[in-house]
């Protein structure tokens, strides 16, 4: 791609242009247009998001066992139970450790992949596709492949076979939590599934950096390699990086599928908050009250984290305020 075509995208055309066009059809009726466009989404949002949230909050104050239409009001008992007499607080800690590790790692790996693929002179499309393809794989299917063929504990599991060549004994990656091999399984799975997608985002951003910047830097004496990367590439990727980190954090919050399939709920470690809530509300206990109380706590935490992140990274602020 030449520098001239990419520059056009880096500076989007002003919005004014569209207003110059003559209006047709539903002219003038802005209110109707507004509801026409937002209505369908709003209805979906209300039915599938706001009603359940409201219902959850209501349930969290009731003794809702084996029913979602309870009658016995118990105040804050559910909150007390989920915070003091369950594994939920521990799971919040687990998740935090997981997020602190997985977010920077995925960020770094996908950026690294993007840089490598960006420098390729041949077979570009091939490598882009190869790294992007795992994104299309279901978490559950991938978890089963990881569990049953790569990290199987028997002697003919792939990892054990490879380690066996070096005389290492068979390792039970998932059954035995000490040492915590299960993190290797989970992290490798998640990196494999996610890195490709974020690599594409970084690739797009990399191609938007004008070549003139690098030329100017070179003339000014910047050495290629680390210096150029640190002072030209990285700052130019700021917007994309922020978006990627936010998306990764959201993805980490939603961690469930691979944990559920690899670790299962019959363990006391590596239980994500969603798994604990699943166990409490939908699993064998069917305690929708306590489950909802946990969900409310989790939602509040997510709100707080998002707000804090907005403050620190400036995500969502208008361009002009910078």
């Amino acid at each position: 791609m030449s520098a001239t075509t990419t520059r056009g995208v880096a500076q989007p055309a002003p919005v004014k242009a569209s207003q110059a066009r003559p209006r047709r059809g539903l002219r003038g009726n802005a209110t109707l247009n507004f509801w026409l466009f937002t209505g369908p989404f709003l209805i979906g949002l209300v039915i599938f998001v706001f009603v359940p949230i409201g219902w959850s909050i209501w349930l969290s104050f009731f003794d809702a066992r084996y029913t979602v239409t309870p009658s016995q009001f118990i105040g804050l008992d559910n909150y007390k139970q989920i915070l003091t007499n369950s594994n939920f607080p521990q799971s919040l800690l687990t998740f935090t450790v997981f997020a602190v590790f997985i977010v920077p790692t995925t960020w770094a790996l996908s950026l690294g992949l993007a840089l490598l693929v960006n420098r390729l002179r041949f077979m570009r499309a091939f490598f882009r596709s190869v790294f992007f393809l795992p994104t299309a794989v279901s978490y559950v299917a991938a978890a089963l492949v990881w569990k049953m063929s790569i990290f199987s504990g028997v002697r003919f599991g792939l990892a054990n076979t490879v380690f066996g060549w070096f005389g290492v004994d068979n390792i039970a990656y998932l059954a035995d939590p000490s040492p915590p091999w299960y993190w290797v399984v989970i992290v490798s799975l998640r990196l494999w599934l996610q890195a490709g997608f974020y690599m594409i985002l970084f690739l797009a951003a990399l191609q938007n950096i004008p070549a003139e910047l690098y030329e100017a830097a070179a003339i000014d004496g910047a050495k290629p390699g680390w210096q150029t990367f640190r002072y030209i590439t990285l700052p130019q990727l700021r917007a994309t990086s922020t978006a990627v980190v936010l998306l990764l954090l959201v993805a980490a919050y939603q961690a469930f599928d691979e944990f559920f399939n690899l670790i299962s709920t019959k363990a006391t470690w590596a239980q994500t908050p969603l798994m604990e809530l699943y166990k409490t509300a939908l699993g064998n206990s069917q305690d929708y009250g306590a489950g909802s109380a946990g969900a409310v706590i989790l939602s509040l935490l997510i709100c707080l984290v998002t707000l804090a992140q907005g403050k620190i990274m400036g995500f969502g602020r208008g361009e002009e305020s910078k």
Partner: peptide, 26 residues
């Protein structure tokens, strides 16, 4: 890529996409 710049958002396309999404949801 240029389709993403705001001047090219066509009402008809947006509406079509919106209806498509709603139908898919249903």
């Amino acid at each position: 890529m240029s389709a993403l710049s705001s001047s090219n958002w066509d009402r008809r396309n947006v509406l079509r996409a919106a209806l498509g999404l709603t139908a898919a949801g249903g």
